[in-house]
Design a protein around this nucleic acid. Sequence first.
DNA 1: AATCCCATCAACCGCCAATCA
DNA 2: TTGATTGGCGGTTGATGGGAT
Length: 214
Amino acid sequence: MGRSPCCEKAHTNKGAWTKEEDERLIAHIKAHGEGCWRSLPKAAGLLRCGKSCRLRWINYLRPDLKRGNFTEEEDELIIKLHSLLGNKLPGRTDNEIKNYWNTHIRRKLLSRGIDPTTHRPLHQPLSDITISFVKQEERINEEKEKILRCPDLNLELCISPPFQEMNNSHHVEPVMKREGGDQGFTLCFTCSLGPHKSQGCKCNNSSSTVVLGL
DNA sequence: AATCCCATCAACCGCCAATCA
DNA sequence: TTGATTGGCGGTTGATGGGAT
């Protein structure tokens, strides 16, 4: 027996959303919150697939979205974080990052002689890539281990706020807060891919950092 | 002015993992 | 334990607009 379809395809609209559909969706989510996407269209009076509603909300209608052109600082931030976090970057939608990566950043990296997939210089000998990749992965795993040894750490890392001023692209510091407290620590992506000012971090310059809070 | 080409981005599709009964 | 359901993610498509010819 195959999968059942996510919705009744025959009676759903497809393609661009109308203003009225947007308004219905926004009104429904404002009233009831994000919930079961499968039943949402019917409840909201929309002839749309639940999945389509979810995408429309997440990628376009969500009130906390930052829209408009990407700044140079955001470009650099995306380049630094993409290999680590994928398309889930601060204040922008997955879809937006994905599209922007494929259309702009990919070309930008190629023009700099960097492979957009591996984040390594183009034409680098395979042996070098393998060795350094393994070393980097080991380092990442070490830092993960360190983090996991803290039992009261809330590892639900979420990066925000969307309108954070980006003054310098050198450091990127997602703050990992402990539950029930306001203490945190930061990750340095410049030299160690680990906690800023930890063993592996050789950076002393903390005056011009980008802080990505919770 | 018409047409072609290319870049962009919203939206869709298919797959996978998590969850639940 | 297993199968169904659901949400989420990455890849792809198609509509649109702008620039070049």
